[in-house]
């Protein structure tokens, strides 16, 4: 029995993506249990909502990115197939325009737009705000997916693969979507989506943090949904984080970190560990599927 468990763990460890999904989830579960025991109830409620909102936004980001990228790719290769160079050029120009804005600035400007919409009471429900936040992040990260899809399609078009099917009368739509994207690139796309999930968390937390410390605290704190980034920017969280550095110079105070400074530590750990976990899952997946 014990030996079987050992073998099962060993096998799972070889599948690094699944291993990290499992151990990461266990670690978050342990964190939750610890917080449930030692963190005050309002802070815990905020932490739970912030964590969930962060995950919901990031999930929406990858869904919207996937749809956007797919539509753009269809259009791009449709124009190319028809030899409509001007349409392709126009599309490429707009994509490059988005590309030329650093992601963080784009998302920041998008958030400013959200606060304006909130002020004008155009956005009323929190799900609308979450969706718009996700759409804005997606707008500035989906190009990575477009690039990947384009690279895959171009690669296969350069092989006999594409032409051999075309001369048999198989439609370009089927070759691109079924044979290239679905059959030969879904692993790559999934891996990119996992990476985008991480990028989305990183951007979201950073912008929420910047907005919370930089922009009007009343507007943002009252109207934007709570996320890990905005929780981190709260003054008590910042003090908790400062306590980490202090504990290094005063090791005797180390134990206090996990009891008295739990809010900030939990938020910071959640952000950092989520990023590590996604990085590890993405790498593990790529390695396992030799991408």
């Amino acid at each position: 029995m014990k030996r079987k468990l050992g073998t099962a763990l060993n096998n799972l460890y070889k599948k690094k993506d699944q291993w990290w999904l499992l151990t990461g989830s266990i670690i978050f579960l342990l964190l939750w249990v610890w917080d449930r025991l030692f963190l005050n109830a309002p802070a815990l409620r905020f932490l739970q909502i912030g964590f969930l909102n962060t995950l919901i936004i990031s999930t929406l980001v990858i869904l919207i990115s996937l749809i956007l990228a797919w539509v753009i790719i269809q259009k791009m290769f449709f124009f190319r197939g028809r030899n409509w160079a001007w349409a392709e050029l126009l599309l490429t120009f707009f994509l490059n325009l988005i590309r030329s804005i650093p992601q963080i600035v784009g998302v920041l400007l998008g958030y400013v737009l959200i606060t304006i919409l909130l002020q004008l009471s155009i956005l009323t429900a929190s799900w609308q705000t979450l969706l718009l936040m996700a759409a804005i992040i997606a707008l500035f990260v989906f190009l990575e997916l477009v690039d990947l899809m384009q690279e895959r399609i171009t690669f296969y078009q350069s092989l006999d693969f594409y032409n051999a099917m075309k001369v048999c009368g198989i439609s370009s739509f089927r070759i691109i979507n079924f044979n290239i994207l679905w059959k030969n690139s879904r692993g790559h796309i999934l891996n990119k989506l996992i990476a985008l999930f991480g990028v989305s968390i990183f951007l979201q937390c950073s912008v929420d943090f910047i907005i919370s410390v930089g922009l009007s605290t009343k507007v943002s704190a009252l109207n934007l949904p709570v996320t890990l980034g905005s929780l981190l920017a709260k003054i008590d969280s910042k003090q908790d984080i400062l306590a980490i550095g202090y504990s290094f110079s005063h090791p005797a105070r180390l134990s206090r970190l996990f009891l008295q400074h739990l809010q900030g530590i939990s938020v910071a750990f959640s952000i950092v560990f989520l990023l590590i976990m996604i990085y590890k899952i993405s790498n593990g997946y790529a390695e396992r599927h030799r991408l």
Binding site: F209, L242, A243
Partner: peptide
């Protein structure tokens, strides 16, 4: 090392100085 290297800059910065 992973926690430090993966932490967003502001987390590290605020743990060092205010």
């Amino acid at each position: 090392a992973y926690l430090v290297l993966f932490a967003p800059a502001y987390v590290i910065a605020y743990s060092v100085k205010s």
